[in-house]
């Protein structure tokens, strides 16, 4: 990493801290970080850990908005630390908090177990036509036209960062709701021409805690760093669920 240009400018960063061994509840600690124009929030956190307070905890890995680890609340808005820059806030103070709507594990690290469980529940894999009727590898790949891929590609760009869950008041009010990322991923598989698992997944969609937990606040799509548009995925699934409901009325199982 090239050495940043020292300008002597300082930016204040408030961090919501929580140390489970000693704290009953979170508290705010302020750090003074030397400001440079190209410094990301994640780099500021690394500066704090390296030079100011080594006890501070946060998740990170790739530094380039692809691993989805460094999600946090920047002035109350869910963002990736590596994709948000000090220059967009300077000279004002920045407040950092762990992602909203998730329990805090320690400092800026949240417990994501519920989110992971939901991703697993929606059967996020291609379900072949019939079990036992799988196409043999020697018969070649499953072909797909660019048009068929375009139908689901947008919904497959998710990096599981959890920003949309932090942006979703319905998930915050009731975490039984399956939530934006998991439903977008579900739509991704249902819309894939190689997949035949729609009937299985529609049972998840049709529940109260499936798509019907959504009131179309739409903030999930605004905060998504990869342009997945979960709100659109859910809206399209609502239409599918309504069709499924009509069919179910005439053709009960």
């Amino acid at each position: 990493m090239s050495k940043p240009v020292e300008t002597g400018q300082i930016i204040d960063i408030d961090i919501l801290r929580y140390r489970p061994e000693e704290d009953k509840k979170p508290f705010t600690q302020t750090f003074e970080v030397p400001y440079t124009e190209d410094m990301s929030i994640l780099e500021a956190l690394q500066h704090i850990k390296d030079h100011l307070d080594s006890t501070i905890s946060f998740r990170w890995s790739c530094r380039m908005a692809i691993c989805g680890s460094c999600g946090l609340m920047v002035n109350g808005v869910p963002k990736l630390g590596c994709k948000a820059f000090l220059r967009d806030y300077y000279p004002k103070k920045i407040s950092l908090e762990p992602l909203a709507n998730f329990p805090i594990e320690r400092d800026l690290v949240v417990v994501m177990d519920d989110f992971i469980k939901k991703l697993e529940e929606i059967k996020p894999y291609i379900i072949p036509e019939k079990t036992g009727d799988k196409k043999c590898l020697s018969e070649g790949p499953h072909k797909q036209t660019p048009e068929q891929m375009a139908k689901y590609k947008q919904f497959s760009m998710c990096i599981n960062c959890g920003l949309c869950y932090a942006a979703c008041p319905q998930y915050g009010l009731d975490n039984k709701f399956t939530g934006p990322a998991a439903l977008a991923l579900l739509a991704r598989y249902n819309r894939d021409s190689r997949d035949f698992g729609e009937a299985q997944r529609m049972k998840i969609v049709n529940q109260e805690e499936g798509v019907w937990g959504c009131t179309f606040v739409g903030y999930c799509s605004v905060v998504c760093p990869k342009g997945v548009d979960p709100a659109a995925a859910i809206q399209l699934l609502k239409v599918e669920s309504s069709k499924d409901y009509l069919i179910g009325m005439f053709k009960p199982e």
Binding site: P20, P26, P103
Partner: peptide, 9 residues
């Protein structure tokens, strides 16, 4: 030693 802290909305 885990003791997750849940914030109420």
């Amino acid at each position: 030693k885990r003791k997750p802290y849940t914030r109420e909305l």
